[in-house]
């Protein structure tokens, strides 16, 4: 199977004696939205770093538009797991980092900041922001660049549930508007299913693929769509198969009435 945007095959990735990733292989077509879910430490961030060209010491073959990843390409953008704002630049200058200082008056900066709810903070410095605010600035910076493949490493982990939903929809609309391909790491199975065309589930020790769930629900999606809940349960089953050290809840989930399920789902999301 050949994919036109990303073809990834990582045979092995080691940190010293520790094998972190073994035989992970997947591809992404242009315009797709794909999520990676898996237990903490299974190598999700490492995979994103490999695709972004930040990590080159692995065995395997990775191709983006038929070229090996290279760090300085503008084709690939990455929103890191931490905000990583440049402390000496204002919020607006951080968002427009790509353009240099002259970019801070770009109308798109103002628009994006308004959309992530930070319209009044354009001239603030990162030290004046809370963790969730800083993360939203990082999201705006990632969206500003408009790469063809945007990698997001748990981008919404530090924001409240309400803002998170708004940011999810913002991400979908920006990606849809520019035809951006998204590869998103998240611990929130609900989020993965809502956003993605496909959810790739990883198992750990060493990190490997335990399965994939295709989410075929039509867009725009309704969060209450029962189809999504079904896919969510499939992802959770896969996750449980691959992680033995956590309580196996899938059995209870299958038997439980829907209301129950919602509660259990959220507590499980928290656990992984």
């Amino acid at each position: 199977m050949s994919h036109n945007l990303l073809d990834l095959m990582v045979a092995a990735k080691d940190f010293e004696a520790l094998r972190v990733i073994k035989n992970v292989r997947f591809g992404i077509d242009s315009g797709e939205i794909v999520s990676l879910v898996g237990p903490s430490g299974c190598g999700k961030s490492t995979l994103l770093r490999i695709i972004a060209g930040l990590d080159t010491s692995y065995r395997g073959d990775v191709r983006i538009k038929d070229e090996p990843p290279h760090l300085h390409s503008r084709d690939v953008g990455l929103i890191f797991q931490e905000p990583r704002l440049l402390p000496w630049l204002t919020v607006a200058e951080n968002v427009a980092f790509e353009l240099g200082r002259k970019g801070r008056h770009d109308p798109y900066v103002t628009q994006l900041l308004a959309e992530v709810g930070l319209g009044d903070f354009a001239t603030a410095y990162p030290k004046q922001l809370s963790g969730g605010m800083a993360q939203r600035v990082a999201i705006a910076r990632g969206l500003f660049t408009q790469p063809s493949l945007l990698l997001l490493d748990e981008p919404f982990s530090a924001v409240d549930a309400f803002t998170r939903r708004r940011l999810q929809d913002l991400l979908l609309s920006v990606a849809g508007h520019h035809g951006t391909t998204l590869l998103l790491v998240t611990h929130d199975v609900n989020e993965a299913v809502y956003l993605s065309d496909r959810v790739i589930v990883l198992a750990d020790r060493p990190g490997r693929i335990s399965g994939q769930v295709i989410v075929d629900a039509r867009r725009p999606r309704d969060r209450r769509n029962p189809q999504l809940a079904k896919r969510e349960a499939e992802v959770l089953t896969l996750l449980n198969d691959g992680t033995n050290q956590f309580f196996d809840l899938s059995y209870h989930l299958a038997a439980a009435p829907p209301r129950w399920q919602a509660i259990r789902l959220s507590s499980l999301n928290f656990a992984i």
Partner: peptide, 21 residues
Amino acid sequence: RKLVEVGGIYGLTGYRLIARI
């Protein structure tokens, strides 16, 4: 290192990486 990586992601090399990071 994390900030230098941000520069790398944005395609900065050489003197531009020096000047901006």
